[in-house]
Design a protein around this nucleic acid. Sequence first.
DNA 1: GTGCTAGGGTACGGAACAGTACCATCTCGG
DNA 2: CCGAGATGGTACTGTTCCGTACCCTAGCAC
Lengths: 201, 201
Amino acid sequence: MSKTQVEEKREAILEAGKEVLFEYGYLGASVDEVLRRVGGSKRTIYKYFESKEGLFGAIVTELVNQAMQPLEMSLLDKEGELYATLEALGQTYLDVILREESVAIFRIAASEGIGHPTLGKALFESGPGAAVKRLAAYLHHQNKIGVLAIKDIDLAARHYYGMVRSDLHMRALLGLPLPAPAEINRGMRQAVASFVGIYEA
Amino acid sequence: MSKTQVEEKREAILEAGKEVLFEYGYLGASVDEVLRRVGGSKRTIYKYFESKEGLFGAIVTELVNQAMQPLEMSLLDKEGELYATLEALGQTYLDVILREESVAIFRIAASEGIGHPTLGKALFESGPGAAVKRLAAYLHHQNKIGVLAIKDIDLAARHYYGMVRSDLHMRALLGLPLPAPAEINRGMRQAVASFVGIYEA
DNA sequence: GTGCTAGGGTACGGAACAGTACCATCTCGG
DNA sequence: CCGAGATGGTACTGTTCCGTACCCTAGCAC
């Protein structure tokens, strides 16, 4: 059997595992259920993954790394006008944290924090934490060039994302319907306008 | 056996069930584990509660109703000066949503939304939703008497709580340590100052 | 062909769990 | 003091699950 076929099998297991994870949560997910979807023998799964913990742990850590990736990439190279930059950051932030996969991994990190104590920290730091740090760097620069006048940059950045997030993330976590994208975008732009109004020099 | 004793037994079951629920989550919680803590016979539990679903469902709904209660009580009768009122609302809000019990019930509502589809809605509406509605009513009044000039009151209220919440609730959900109360309070007061700065007439 | 290895299918051991059954025990009203 | 109902303790059935074992087939190397 060729290497690509081996990889395909492994990826099929991971994909099915991801589905099971999203449907049943970390504790509710079972190897048997993955097996029902991916077919084949249980032994094959245990060939690639040491245990249930190993399988779903691999899926979870991969998801954390992938889901929040756009927030870690630096947008600082395309700094444009203040409003445009802040709105771009806000839009990216909302796109990332409101995506179905992100909400699912967040739910898992929140609920199964017991047993996986470092998962929540990893998710926060590669997601919202990274976004705050990146915005803080940008705000620091705007401070220096006299566009903004912020005393506590870190707090301002967290308040910015707090406004942008509004109650949207909470609604998503609880499974409530979200407003239409146009309405979400309107709220985000109002948040940007408020933020600039507070801190402009 | 007297009625009070019967009530005591029932309450003991509920109390132990609450502990188990917080430790293991909704799916991980088991009747056997409750039994290990409260003692006695399994039959007794099934005398008071129809099933596992019935037991933990009762606990969850009771928790939702109790945990968010302070946010539903109207503070409008003690309206004072603008800053003081907004800070009081913010402080109450943070006290409620960052409490250990609230975080736990939120985790449950978020993660086990599957199978309990209405729980998330109930929690949101009796908690953050109620807070927004109450603040919106207050802001509407301040608009009328010329203290504030807000175009979209509902959006402003959600942005207010977004700033107050900052990333604190997210951190709590993910099991990360929170800043010291003094630091939290400082951030909240800055949020109030920013809010008033945006919308004062 | 002949060996070899990966995987498929099934079965099994051990454990946890939901819910029921049975009997001993205790409590309270009369 | 005595009987009825409530409770304790234990055991049981049926299910699900993790992880392992066993045997079979399919494809590849030589």
